[in-house]
Design a protein around this nucleic acid. Structure first.
Length: 257
DNA sequence: ATGTCCCCTTGTAGGGGA
């Protein structure tokens, strides 16, 4: 079973690229972030035609997350990250697919830091850590997948010294990610590639992809009940090299059925 | 500071966000 995460950066502009990638790689589950579309503008017909059922949480202009499942309808199991009823940003949705709980998330960017956006990022992170603890305690097979907007270590940044004051790499951000993982989650990509430089995002600026000036910020975290099933974890890097690409590449895990 | 791309607009160029 293949579970992928892909920040599409606008599903309106990215639909052809998304459909091409789905057709080529046929992931069983695809978690999408940054739809940048209101609920009613999700291209459900095209997704269905590609063979996928879908649930999604849209928002005008910003954010937006979706879970696609090949050949079946994802069973929605939660919309919105618990812990703050006043939070109106569409950044979190859960579904059950094939007995696995899939949490698709788009963690706030948080720049500029310090400031209110960074405060929101850290507060959102605390809520995710609380939800993570509940999910670990449940003993369920769970995947946390998405754009975490965190480079966990220096190995995950092309030039770490340039990023130390950025919201994606500040000590508070890395410490929060570590606290989450230390609950018992397995960082699938890093586990399968312990010493490798491996990126999931390249800025549109300054030919970042051509220079391989990338970041590893898209992650798939496996709960203890699921970690023994991990067989492979990779980045579909070639997708970033195409015409009109997202700034993120699809990232995926292969799990033993 | 800059670069680029996406989305929206008492819209068609400019601002906000990443």
């Amino acid at each position: 079973m293949r579970v992928a995460t892909f920040n599409v950066n606008g599903i309106g502009s990215r639909l052809p690229a998304l459909l091409q990638w789905l057709d080529e790689t046929q992931p069983d589950v695809a978690c999408l972030q940054e739809l940048k579309a209101p609920q009613e503008k999700f291209p459900l017909d095209a997704i269905r035609e590609a063979g996928y059922g879908a649930i999604w949480h849209g928002q005008k202009s910003w954010n937006g997350v979706a879970i696609l499942a090949r050949g079946c309808q994802p069973q929605e199991a939660g919309r919105g990250l618990p812990g703050d009823p006043s939070d109106e940003q569409s950044r979190y949705i859960e579904a059950i697919v094939n007995g696995i709980r899939i949490a698709c998330l788009y963690l706030p960017n948080g720049n500029p830091a310090p400031g209110p956006k960074f405060d929101y990022k850290l507060a959102w992170f605390e809520r995710l850590i609380a939800r993570g603890a509940e999910l670990i305690a449940s003993g369920e097979k769970v995947i946390l997948a998405g754009d975490f907007n965190v480079m966990p270590t220096e190995l995950d940044v092309y030039k770490p010294e340039r990023w130390v004051n950025d919201a994606l790499f500040r000590p508070e951000t890395r410490a929060a990610f570590r606290r989450l993982v230390d609950q018992g989650w397995t960082d699938a990509l890093r586990t399968m590639h312990p010493d490798e430089t491996i990126y999931t995002f390249w800025d549109y600026f300054r030919n970042a992809f051509g220079r391989d000036a990338g970041l590893r910020i898209d992650h798939l975290l496996l709960s203890p009940a699921l970690a023994p099933a991990l067989r492979a974890a990779e980045v579909d890097r070639h997708v970033r090299a195409r015409e009109k690409p997202s700034d993120h590449a699809p990232t995926w895990v292969e799990l033993d059925a």
